[in-house]
């Protein structure tokens, strides 16, 4: 398991990741996009962003355009991806992800059969005020 916390003046995310691939789904308005945007800012400006990131592993957001370059450099990290449907080479991306030792957090409601089922946990983002956390939905990907 891997635990990470991400926070700024408005929100706190406390995430427990039990498998290498976490698919985050759930209702709109629960802060999924806000977390990805925070991780994007943090990846570009780790100190200057003012975003606090702590936990078992370093964290980074993957860029749509430079993911190949990024994945070559990221080891033993927690990597956040936006909607994976935007990545044109999805299967290539998935294969590259599975060759690494990183944990991955993806936001998608689609089924992604490219990932082995044993490596995947489906979660929902929950929120109460500024606190956010993940709860497992089931081991199924649908």
């Amino acid at each position: 398991m891997c635990h990470v916390e991400v926070s700024n003046r408005n929100v706190v995310y406390r995430l427990d990741l039990h498998k290498r691939i976490t698919l985050v789904r759930g209702n709109s308005g629960t802060g999924k996009t806000a977390l990805y945007e925070m991780m994007n800012d943090y990846t570009d400006f780790p100190t200057d962003s003012g975003i606090n990131v702590s936990g078992d592993k370093p964290c980074a957001a993957l860029s749509y355009w430079y993911w190949e370059h990024q994945l070559r450099r990221l080891h033993d990290c927690v990597v956040f991806l936006g909607e994976p449907q935007y990545y044109m080479e999805l299967e290539e991306l998935a294969e590259a992800m599975l060759r690494t030792d990183n944990y991955y957090v993806l936001y998608t409601r689609e089924n992604l059969p490219v990932f082995p089922e044993d490596d995947v946990e489906v979660c929902e983002m929950k929120a109460n005020g500024r606190e956010h956390w993940l709860t497992a939905v089931s081991s199924e990907r649908k």
């Binding site: 408005n10 929100v11 209702n27 709109s28 308005g29 802060g31 996009t33 806000a34 929120a127």
Partner: peptide, 16 residues
Amino acid sequence: SPIFGIMSPEKLSGGV
């Protein structure tokens, strides 16, 4: 917003 205070429409959720 109860979380972000006064915000622009750009801060709305992707769903909305």
